[in-house]
Nucleic acid binder design. Structure first.
Lengths: 160, 160
DNA sequence: GGCAAATAGTGGACAAATGCAACTATTATT
DNA sequence: AATAATAGTTGCATTTGTCCACTATTTGCC
């Protein structure tokens, strides 16, 4: 029960309450915006939508034989979600899966020709999207942001 | 088509390809982690899950009469998603909605007693969650991060 | 050797969120 | 008066995420 004050009809008159000082708010909100933008740029490329397909494709491409569970850790999904993601990408003929010789419960993933092609295609797109999207932040601050987030991320997933 | 090299079986042997230098990757990944953690802390509080409920509740609480479309801008949802969010919160008896007197196509939102109570309850939780979650980042860098993200966010939503 | 626990992956069910497009009502423009 | 813009609603199709139980394989322990 606050005031009977002005009913804000524009974003200018609004303050964000405690969220103003809450990192998680900004991370979550920026995520929405950056993900939407990225999806738009990847439209039609059967790697759009949702987090994980891009990382999975690039990771498999540059680490042939990598296991699903390793990727799952990197993109923070549980094994079941990871499995479905891979199924999907196999359906789209981007990856193949085979059981490991010396660890018969594990799988090894490889890109198909089509997958390799797509990986090569999206690499510059993904990089450019990020650069473009964050271009309204001055470069020095972009670098700071990247540095902090990279270390934070690595610590979080236990990448030493 | 890369090597025939070591098949990475642990996250230690993996590099992130171009994502290593891609801000959007870190934002998207941190988002998953921070959102999961936040959901866990809000478990049972019918404001958990998904982005928007928390912001909506706090915003309506501190800006009585605020319009759905204004909140939608702030949390970057389209009107339809916003509407459904509000329906849900009305069902849970957190908000009430009435049409504006002088703008009969617009709505004004208010918290119920239960909504106000919940707002008061989650404010400290949300703050603490963010602090706790990011506590592995040294304070000075947290401040930098916040400063950059806040300005980035404000610019992005056109908050001047 | 043999049993129990840990690890890798699969499959199903269920609950949500997301995005798109079409539709109503109201207000602003010209 | 006609047209366009704004606020919100509704339906639909697509995804996503989560939880849990289940199989197969490997590892550790006694």
């Amino acid at each position: 029960m606050s005031d009977g004050g002005p009913k804000p009809t524009s974003i200018e008159h609004v303050n964000l309450d405690v969220l103003e000082n809450t990192l998680s708010f900004y991370i979550r909100t920026m995520n929405i915006a950056v993900s939407r933008d990225l999806d738009a740029r990847l439209d039609g490329l059967d790697v759009a939508r949702g987090t994980g397909k891009i990382t999975t494709l690039l990771l498999v491409d540059s680490h042939p034989g990598i296991r699903p569970s390793v990727i799952a850790q990197i993109i923070m999904k549980d094994r079941s979600a990871m499995g479905r993601l891979i199924d999907q990408m196999i359906d789209h003929d981007l990856l193949v899966r085979q059981t490991s010789a010396r660890e018969r419960r594990a799988h090894e993933l490889f890109v198909t020709a089509k997958g390799a092609e797509l990986a090569a295609k999206i690499r510059p797109i993904v990089t450019k999207q990020s650069n473009d999207f964050f271009s309204f932040i001055v470069e020095e601050e972009q670098a700071q942001l990247m540095d902090i987030l990279r270390r934070a991320y690595r610590k979080m997933v236990g990448m030493k």
